[in-house]
Every structure is written in C-alpha cells, then in structure tokens.
C-alpha cells in the first residue's frame, strides 16, 4: 500500500482579515509580518487520513509539494506527523501557474514516483480555493476521483470505501484503486507530531525535483501551460454602516434589538 499526499503551503488562513494586504501593482498577496506560512488545513487532514490507513493496514506515505523553498516546511510537517518520505518540486519554471498547470506538474511527479494506490488531497487549497487540482490530476492519470470526504478505508484487495460529505449527510461509495480522494474538515483533528517524529523529520532528506527530474522541456515554463490568466487581485471594501444598539444594560439591548427587527419588518 503506497499513498501519496499532495500538500500545499499557504499563508496562514487564520490571519485576521484586518492584516490582509495585496500589492495590486504586482497582483500578489503581501505576507503578514511575523506570520509563518502553514500546510493548507485540508491537506493536513488528508495526511491524517493517510496515516490512519497506515496505522491500520501498514504501508508508506509520500508527501509531495510544489512551491518555493519554504514549502519544505509543509513537507517536514507532514513527515513529523508520520509520513515516510517527502518530495519538493521547486524552481522558477513552476511559478505563476493555474490549477491546470499545477495539476500537470503534480501528475508528472506522481507518475515518476510510480505505484501509488491512493492519492490524497485537500478539497481546496486555503489560498486560491480552486478545488480543481486533485480532480484534474485524476483525469490526467485516468483514474476516478472521490471528493469532499470525511473518511476512507481499505475494504479489500485494491478496493476502498469512501464517505462523501453532502449538505444533508453522507454518500458512501466504493471504488477500485488507484484513485484520487480529497478531504474536508469532517475528517476531524489532525494528529500532533510526536517528538520522535519531529526529530526524524528534521534529519530526513527531502529531494528537490525540477523540470529535468520530471522530464519537462527546460525552456518551457509551467506558466505557458496555464489556460487562465489573472488580470487583477484586490481587497474588497465593505462599507461599515452598523447601528450599535445600546440599552442601559445588555438585557435591555437584547429587547431593543428585537423591537428594531420588528419595526424594520425583518421579522
């Protein structure tokens, strides 16, 4: 059983909106000072699912990330949680891509690693929120994708069970492997790295693959494969127009609020 987790590093999504900045000339997000980037939360949950399978059935887990040198930290985090190996895909050729081009690169990496039974992703990356990469990877590999999962388990030779989260409950599916599976918050709390794993992760070599390792034309940037183009990035402004309701005490405010909603015919 070999599992591959696709993990992306993102600016910490819990950064308060007030400190979120965009450089509109460069169409880029300005990282908040002193806030370190993190592994995208749903990708961390995908790692958790892989490790639950490994705990139960054995096997190995490889974490793969495409990103700048700092993305090594996202891989190290996955290793500290219990993944066995990590691969970083980095280089100027991979900058400014879109979901398609990202999937193209990751699918090439998965093919090079070979023999993956399950490929685990987040339902969407917490920065660009595309929710496309895992599904396009599955199409490129010619295998099914099961999305927005709460859990998955192995139920036979080359066979998995998958629970998809829907607004009103779960749809349970069975699928042959290899398959791509994507996960959401319903997975639950990812495990904390143990001290032993943190130390092992620190020592672990994380190879860096560039265009040459993936068999790409060195003169062809991933950007040239993109099918969409960013024109503008900006922070939307909301006009604050709140009416604060202040009674003599909080209970009075509550009563005034109810009356206000009634007067305005909202209820």
């Amino acid at each position: 059983m070999h599992m591959i987790c696709l993990v992306k590093q993102v600016p910490d999504p819990e950064t308060p909106s007030a400190s979120f900045r965009v450089d509109s000339a460069a169409n880029k997000v300005v990282p908040a000072t002193g806030v370190a980037p993190v592994i995208s939360p749903f990708d961390e949950q995908a790692v958790e699912v892989a490790l639950r399978i490994k705990d139960k059935h054995g096997g190995t887990v490889t974490a793969v990330s495409m990103g700048p040198a700092s993305a090594r930290d996202a891989i190290k985090h996955a290793l500290a949680m219990g993944c066995d190996d990590g691969i970083l895909i980095d280089g100027p050729a991979f900058e400014y891509t879109d979901s398609y081009s990202t999937a193209y690169t990751l699918a090439a990496a998965i093919k090079k690693i070979g023999d993956a039974d399950i490929i685990l992703c987040g339902r969407q990356a917490a920065d660009w929120d595309g929710g496309q990469v895992g599904i396009i990877v599955s199409e490129m590999l010619g295998i099914p994708a099961l999305i927005n999962g709460q859990s998955t388990d192995i139920i036979g030779d080359k066979k998995i069970k998958f629970e998809r989260v829907l607004p009103d409950g779960l749809d349970v599916y069975e699928s042959a492997t290899p398959a791509v599976v994507t996960f959401s918050q319903e997975v639950g709390q990812p495990r904390y790295p143990t001290l032993r794993n943190i130390m092992a992760a620190a020592r672990k070599e994380v190879p860096v693959w560039g265009p040459a390792e993936l068999g790409f034309d060195p003169n062809e940037a991933a950007k040239s494969r993109a099918k969409t183009k960013l024109e503008r990035l900006f922070v939307p402004v909301f006009e604050a127009k709140v009416e604060i309701i202040e009674g003599e005490n909080p209970a009075e405010s509550g009563r005034l609020l109810a009356m206000k909603l009634r007067e305005a015919k909202i209820i």
Partner: peptide, 10 residues
C-alpha cells in the same frame, strides 16, 4: 480567493 479576503479577476 484567500477565503474571501481578496477578489481576483481572470
């Protein structure tokens, strides 16, 4: 994008 913190035009 960015969880609603920003908008992108493409």
């Amino acid at each position: 994008v960015y969880g609603g913190n920003a908008r992108s035009v493409l």
